[in-house]
Design a protein around this nucleic acid. Structure first.
Lengths: 221, 221
DNA sequence: AAAAGTCTGTTGTATTTACAACGGAAAAGA
DNA sequence: TCTTTTCCGTTGTAAATACAACAGACTTTT
């Protein structure tokens, strides 16, 4: 257990809490640890989760198989990341995805009830943990809503406009820099890279915006 | 304040808590109330939120205006629904949407710190409130991820398959009933209704599935 | 400096989609 | 029952997209 404390310290959930405090918290949090070999399933579609999960070591893949057997990868979980939290609610139903170990991995299982309930011994950091948990899930939520906003646009152009528009707002300027390259940006917006590239150039030619590499400038009108 | 207690009782956040307890909790939760006339802005893009908001009366529209002035409606908030919770994190940045009153409305402002911190007088229902808050946002999150999964599919057919597939899994059968009509289903998946209808019929003709009204049956192979 | 590799824009074609418009079936209302 | 309205499938056309393939610019490696 001790070996994961330094990993936990670097997670958002335990950010700003010292190793000793983490160690004492782990005692009242009912943590269990389980190891998985590469390619082993952590969860299968249809199972139920009641724990909050944290990846202590390795790497996981969240994938989805539809009724006809088509497989698609939804997400990757890296060391220190939390997952499964959305399924901890009592009425959340079975999970719809498979979770598979991409490498030999270690998963820490936290009893969500223990985290959310006030600890009888009143750990001084318990409140902080609850806040971190809430803020972490809030952040996920915010990003999801944003992305949904982009993806619900019908055309590639509209997707680009809504995305770039939001980034400009965030960076508080009509110029913005993004961290994606073109392929990643296309994957993020679920469009074809070449079609997207094409559309960007059209908009540039129409005088709506300009760009050099990853720096974009938006023009009014 | 008292007039909202019965409304609060019907919210997910205060579900299962009696009116008297709600009244006592409101005292330690630092609630403030503000009224808005129809068409008045509750928040504007670029502002910061630090409170958890609950709609006590009326109806709100969450809308978005992009850099070029194009307006689109993202969501509707009805009485008893929570909103703004995703922006309460200290580093969440400015909101990217406008919130406008569609009718004369009353908004309750909850201090998120008070909710997340253990109450000194130790309200017996405080833990329950924290749990409800967590589960509510978890559920929102889960639905968002699901929808994102459907929308990230490129073609109308793939969107339909992933959606119907998930519904079948949820209902644990190869037959499923949905609550949407065709137009709503198309809006949900962000596709054109007639194109979707067309695609559904093609798939039926190809023997992949069958449907009568809102009841669908999926076939293997 | 040369070679290999990556990233980006460009083009053409086949496929897919949006949009508008229509008719029939079913449901709701008079 | 008759009328009105809503819902759904169908079709044709214009527009947008995916996909493949390629060339130039730029990076990284050797």
């Amino acid at each position: 257990m001790k070996k994961y404390i330094s990993a936990l310290k670097r997670t958002k959930l335990f950010a700003g809490i010292g190793e000793e405090e983490i160690a004492s918290m782990l005692n009242c949090l009912n943590v269990s640890v389980k190891n998985y070999s590469k390619k082993e399933y952590v969860f299968r579609q249809g199972e139920y989760i009641r724990d909050l999960l944290l990846l202590g070591e390795g790497r996981l893949i969240i994938q989805k198989e539809d009724y006809w057997g088509n497989l698609s990868i939804l997400n990757e979980i890296c060391v220190g990341e939390m997952f499964g939290e959305a399924y901890t609610a009592p009425d959340s139903g079975a999970i719809l995805n498979d979770v598979v170990a991409a490498e030999d991995s270690t998963v820490l299982f936290f009893d969500i009830e223990k985290i959310l309930s006030v600890c009888p011994s009143a750990c001084p950091y318990h409140t902080r943990l609850v806040k971190s948990l809430f803020y972490t899930i809030s952040e996920k939520n915010r990003k999801l809503v944003q992305k949904l906003g982009y993806m619900s646009q019908r055309t590639t152009r509209e997707k680009l406009l809504s995305y770039l528009s939001d980034e400009a707002k965030k960076q508080n300027s009509n110029s913005l820099t993004i961290s994606f390259n073109r392929q990643q940006m296309a994957d993020f917006l679920s469009v074809d890279r070449s079609a997207m590239s094409n559309e960007l150039c059209k908009m540039r030619d129409e005088g709506m915006l300009d760009f050099h590499k990853n720096e974009f400038t938006l023009y009014e009108e």
